[in-house]
Nucleic acid binder design. Sequence first.
DNA 1: AAATATTTTTAGACTTGTCTAAAAATAAAT
DNA 2: ATTTATTTTTAGACAAGTCTAAAAATATTT
Lengths: 220, 220
Amino acid sequence: MLLTTSAEENYLKAIFKISEKDPGPVLTNALATAMGTSAASATDMLKRLSEKQLVAYEKYRGVTLTPEGNRLATSLIRKHRLWEVFLVEKLGFAWDEVHDFAEQLEHVQGDNLTDRLDEYLNHPRFDPHGDPIPDAQGRWIRRPQVRLTTLSPGQKGIVTGVDDHTSPFLQYLDELGIALGVAIELLDRTAYDQSSKVRISGKEYTLSEKASQNLFLRLE
Amino acid sequence: MLLTTSAEENYLKAIFKISEKDPGPVLTNALATAMGTSAASATDMLKRLSEKQLVAYEKYRGVTLTPEGNRLATSLIRKHRLWEVFLVEKLGFAWDEVHDFAEQLEHVQGDNLTDRLDEYLNHPRFDPHGDPIPDAQGRWIRRPQVRLTTLSPGQKGIVTGVDDHTSPFLQYLDELGIALGVAIELLDRTAYDQSSKVRISGKEYTLSEKASQNLFLRLE
DNA sequence: AAATATTTTTAGACTTGTCTAAAAATAAAT
DNA sequence: ATTTATTTTTAGACAAGTCTAAAAATATTT
């Protein structure tokens, strides 16, 4: 059994997420930025992770996860998302309140905890933000994710997820009545700034470009 | 808001527990032993905790918790025990499996988590080992705790708690059918080694002195 | 009260993880 | 192809927490 610290685990997750969006080796600077730290610190950490065989690291060439590193990162994401489901479904937190808790809970170690939690929650396949939850074997379902910005006027979609988990954004969505499962119809798009005119349960709203960009939909 | 590390929190808990059993200042050596570390390390930590005003520490004279330190220690015990209830009641773990998880979960920080968990669990007053759970104000009910070793032959009691949370001991109790709420009648005590002959739901057993010492009962 | 034993503290070193500043390597621009 | 700009690494320092060994304080024994 391999021992990892929370700090190491957070770096692994960051590497995983960056290479998910942007395949290929992750550069030190991108990692440092994602971790909110300096390139020097990232380099230090990459050396440690490399010694533990969790990443393949080549000086100046960036880093990729080894199979073991990938397994660990996937498990962390599984834990994070399961805990988020628990916090929302069982403890009654709002979707904008759970990230920081899950960030800590995902590092709790020990046999079987994750699988029991998964069982208890009835094997949810998506977390409260619509992100897919890997199963015990590390496999997950790809979420239907058409961005609102790609719709043509007149098209309708059901919200399946959000790409920004920050409290202000999620609360802004709450105010508009936007939640997972809600139907949105694109009425029109402002030409000069790409903001969207939409209809949500009968009412019309204007969504900023950023908000439009951060909404994932399944087309109806 | 005061920031504390897990290591600091564990020391605070240890100080709390030692002075619970043995009132008065906690000596460095006792603390080091409880923490499984050296007296030198304990001294180092006491300086840090003292700077943070969590303990009143006088060189060579031992240490006591400040009101703030006491509040924090009590809150940690509350969190630990609530998580244990969750793990046993909701996730279906056995009472000997939950300690290590709770040891990690108790350090999760953030507003409201503990109180929501408490609410969700229906404000339990005792954890799976029979230990009282402090409420949000830090108050708790004292558990009826007569030790089996203090009973006279012929007396009966209901198990209300155990004073040893280790897996081997709890599994030993499982084998004998001893759990919270089970009735035990003391039949006889061996003179030379204080082990106890008992009756549990009709059957007779002999409990070692150590086991007898670690069982708390409410007299019938 | 002096000698001995125990406890506690200090001193110095190590690890993990962080930082800033400087050096080295790579990439981009002329 | 050389200069310039950017990225990355190294070097050295710091903090938290640990350790062992030695020094200092307290307690116990004679």
